[in-house]
Amino acid sequence: MKDNEARQVGRQIPITSDLDIVEARMAARTLAAKIGFTGANLVMIATAVSEVARNIVEYAKPGEVILSVIENGPRRGLEVVARDNGPGIPDVAQAMVDGYSTSRGLGLGLPGSRRLMDEFYVDSKAGKGTTVTMRKWVPEK
């Protein structure tokens, strides 16, 4: 987070089951629409949130998804933080490669979500959990 950015937390959603995945993506979509995202951007945000929330349910529940409105000068954006205290990702670089999966997934969750958002960071330590932070900025008119 840069010094000139401001953040206001919008929603915090506990993630324990597949029901919460739906809740998280709906909340993300609602908040994104409120700050000016439209059309395909709303779907991309909801899809990325769905992927990171599912990672928590499949590998590391319980966890949480925190949605915040961020500002950098005149620009507004949505920040999604997906956090858990699970086993962590042993090899983050490998997990970011298309098609890599240790579960029943397609292995597109993390690399795919990165393509859907503007910024994407993974912080993970074995045994200490994972925090995925992703951001998308409202396109300038």
Partner: peptide, 14 residues
């Protein structure tokens, strides 16, 4: 499949 959904699917690599 809605056009926006199709777009996101392609971006995701699905």
């Amino acid at each position: 499949i809605q056009p926006e959904v199709a777009f996101a699917m392609v971006q995701l690599g699905l």
